[in-house]
Design a protein around this nucleic acid. Sequence first.
DNA 1: AATGAATGAGGCTTCATTCAT
DNA 2: CATGAATGAAGCCTCATTCAT
Lengths: 221, 221, 221, 221
Amino acid sequence: MADEMDEWLASLLRLSDEDDKMTDKQIKIIQAAVEIFAEKGYAATSTSEIAQKAGVAEGTIFRHYRTKKDLLISIVTPVMAKLVAPFVLRDFNKVLDSHYEHFEDFLRAVMRNRLDFVVKNAPIIKIMLHEIPFHPELQRQFREKVFPQVADRVVRIVQRFQDRNELVEMPPFALLRMAVSVMAGYILTRSLILPDDDWDDEAEIERAVAFIMHGLTPANH
Amino acid sequence: MADEMDEWLASLLRLSDEDDKMTDKQIKIIQAAVEIFAEKGYAATSTSEIAQKAGVAEGTIFRHYRTKKDLLISIVTPVMAKLVAPFVLRDFNKVLDSHYEHFEDFLRAVMRNRLDFVVKNAPIIKIMLHEIPFHPELQRQFREKVFPQVADRVVRIVQRFQDRNELVEMPPFALLRMAVSVMAGYILTRSLILPDDDWDDEAEIERAVAFIMHGLTPANH
Amino acid sequence: MADEMDEWLASLLRLSDEDDKMTDKQIKIIQAAVEIFAEKGYAATSTSEIAQKAGVAEGTIFRHYRTKKDLLISIVTPVMAKLVAPFVLRDFNKVLDSHYEHFEDFLRAVMRNRLDFVVKNAPIIKIMLHEIPFHPELQRQFREKVFPQVADRVVRIVQRFQDRNELVEMPPFALLRMAVSVMAGYILTRSLILPDDDWDDEAEIERAVAFIMHGLTPANH
Amino acid sequence: MADEMDEWLASLLRLSDEDDKMTDKQIKIIQAAVEIFAEKGYAATSTSEIAQKAGVAEGTIFRHYRTKKDLLISIVTPVMAKLVAPFVLRDFNKVLDSHYEHFEDFLRAVMRNRLDFVVKNAPIIKIMLHEIPFHPELQRQFREKVFPQVADRVVRIVQRFQDRNELVEMPPFALLRMAVSVMAGYILTRSLILPDDDWDDEAEIERAVAFIMHGLTPANH
DNA sequence: AATGAATGAGGCTTCATTCAT
DNA sequence: CATGAATGAAGCCTCATTCAT
C-alpha cells in the first residue's frame, strides 16, 4: 500500500517533466505502444508490432516492462494522475475563492483546461476509456485515486454556490453529472469522435456554459 | 452492397421476432458470446470459451458464423437497427405532430424509451461502444445507417420547435449534442457504469428534462 | 484428493493395457517425449522438438497435455504405479507365504522381476530418477504412493524372516537399504549406466543374492 | 587436448588451495551457481538468476566463464578431481600396505573418507550426478580421468586380498560393484536423499562393513 | 575489470479455423 | 447438422550472450 501510494504521488509530482528518467528506447516504446493501443485496442495489439514500430527488439520491451499489461498501466497511470491534477493542487480552494466569482466562471475555466488536456492526450485518454472496464487494476486506480479526489472537492464547490442561491437546489451529484455530461459530451466529440471536423472551441465552450446555466428555453419565452 | 443492404433491411424488419429462424444452438452461441464479449472485450475472448459457455462444440460456432468477427457483427448489427427503430417508423412525423405538443414532451418520451432499450440491451450496447472504434465495418454501419437516419429526422424536429420559438436559436446540431449528452450521461451511468446503484428513473428523467429546458439557474435569481 | 486417488488407482488397474484409450497421435507424442526427455533431460527438451519427432503439430501436444509438465507427469506417473505393482497385489502376503520358503528365494524373485521391469522401461526410469528431485508433484507421488506401499510390506517380510532367525537382527530399514543397494546397484548399472556391455543376468543375480546372504568372506576363512 | 590436460592437472594440483586465484566476484558466482544448479538443475537455471544471487552483473559471469556450460564444467571438474584424489596420492600403495591389514579396514577407511567428502560437497555431487548423463564433456572426464584412475588401483587391492584368501573368488569388478553399491547406497541416502534424518554415521559404517564382509546370514545359522 | 542495456532466437502456450467422422 | 481432433501461425515472454560505457 505504502509503495503504491508513493508511486502514485511520485507520478503526480513528476507532472511537469514528462518521460522523466526514461531512456531513449523506453520513450520510443511508450510512443509506439500508445499509438497502436489507441488504434487497435490493447488486446489486439501484439508486442512484436510495438517493438517494430518503436525500432527496438521485442526483448527490449520486456526489460523495461515486465509484462504487456505493465506497459499498459505505465501508460495510463500518469494520465490518470494528471486528470486529477488541477483539482488536487495544494491551494485549490483558495485559488477558487479568489478566482471564480460565479459558478459559470469556474465551469469555463475547468472546461477550457480539461479540453486542452484531453486534446493533448487524446490517444491515451482513448486507451484509458477503453481499457478501464477490462482491467481491475485500472478500475482500482480510478475508483480510489481519481474519482474521490475530484468528486469530493467539486461537490464542495457546488454546495457553496447552492448556498449562495447561484445554483438550483438538487443533489450535488446529480447536478454535477449533468454539467459534466455536457462538457464531456463536447470534449470527447471534439477530440476523439470527430477530431477532424472544424471546431470553434471558444464558441462551443461559451455555448456549453450558457446551456448549463440557462438551459434551452429562450429568455423571452 | 446490395446484399448488405438487404441484410440491413432484413434485420430492421425482423425487429419484432427476436432470434427468428435461429436454431437452439445458435441462440446459445449468441447469448454466450454477448456475455463474454461484454465482460472481457471482443479481442480478449476466445471462441473456445464461447463454445464452452454455450455448451456446443467449437466447430459449431463456425458452421453458423464464418469467422469470429462475423459473430461480433451478427450481435451488434441488430441492436444498431433497433437503436434507430423509433426514429424510422413510417409515420414518425405524424406521430410526433399528434403526440408531442412541447419539446420537453418529446425529450421525455425519447429518454424514457431509449433508457428502457439500453437497460434491456446493456451488454450489447457496451460491446457496441467498445468495438465500433476498432471495426471499420461497424463504423460504416453506424455512419451510414444509424447516424443519418436519426440525425436528419431529429434535426427537423428541433427546427420546428425553434421556429415556434420554443427553443433557443442555435445550430441544431450543437443543441442536439448538448441535449443528447445530458440524456446519454444519465442512461450510460445508470445502465453501464453504475448499474448496481439505486436509481429513481422517473425522477432523474424529470430532472434531466428540466435541466435541458431551464439550465441550472434558479427561477428567482 | 479423491480424484487424485482415483486417477492413481486407475493407472494401477490399467497396468496390463498399455496406452489404453490413447489416440494414435497421443501415443506418438508420449513415445517421442520419452525418448528425448531421456536423452537430453526434461528442461533441455523443447516441445517443438517433441512435436517434430512425433510427427504432429506443436499445438497437438497441448490439446492432450495442458502443459509441458503435465506431459512429464503423464509419463512418469504410470511407471511409478507399476513400480509398486508387484508389492500391492491383493494377495501379496499369501503369495509370499506359499512361494518363498527362504529370504533368498524372495530376493531372487524380486530382483529378477524388477530387473526385467527396469530394463523394459529404462528410459522412463531414467527420466523419473532425474526429475523427481526437481518436481514437487513427483516427489509427493513417490513419498505418498510409492514408498509407503512398498516399504511397509517389505519390512513386514523382513521381520518375519528375522523372527525365524533366517536374517540377522538389525533395524529392518537398514537391512533393506543394504540389500536394495546391492540389487539396485546392479539393475541400474546394467540398464542405465552401461547397457551396452554384455551382462549375464542370471549369474549376476545369483552373485548378488549370494553376496547379500553371505557377504564377501570365504566359507573356509 | 594439451590445454585440457593442463587444466585437469592444474585442478588436481590445486587440490589444497580452494578458490585459488579466484576474484571475490568469481567465488560468489560459483557459490551462487552451485546453490541454484543443485536446487533446480542446470538447464532450468538462468544466468540472470545466478547473477542476482551472486550480487554481480550478468555480464560479469561471462567475463569469467565464456558460456553457461563453461560455468558448469568449472564447478564439476574440481570435485571430480577430488573424488579420485585419495586414490592417486603418489604413495598410495605404500600407504595401503602399511595401513590396512585387512580388507575391512580398507573399506572402513574409504567409506569414512568419502562419506565425509560427499557430505561436504553434497550440492556439487548432486549436480555432477544429474548432469553427467547430459554433457559429453563431463562424461569424458569421468570415463577417462576419474574411473580408470580409481578402478585400476582398487582392483589391484582387491586382487591382493583375494590372493590372501581374505576375499571370495569372483571377478574383481563384480565384487567391487557390490561393495561400492552398499557404501554408495548409504552415502547418497544420508547426504542427498534424506539429509535431514538423524544418522549415526559410525554405526552405519560398521554395519555396512560387516554386511559387506559377512552378509545377512546369522552366525549361528 | 565490471556493468547492465540490448538483442533476437527460441520457448511454451493459445487461438481461429478446418475437416473427417 | 454437429463434433472435436488437428493444425500452424502468432502471441507473450525468457534467455544466453554481446558490447559500449
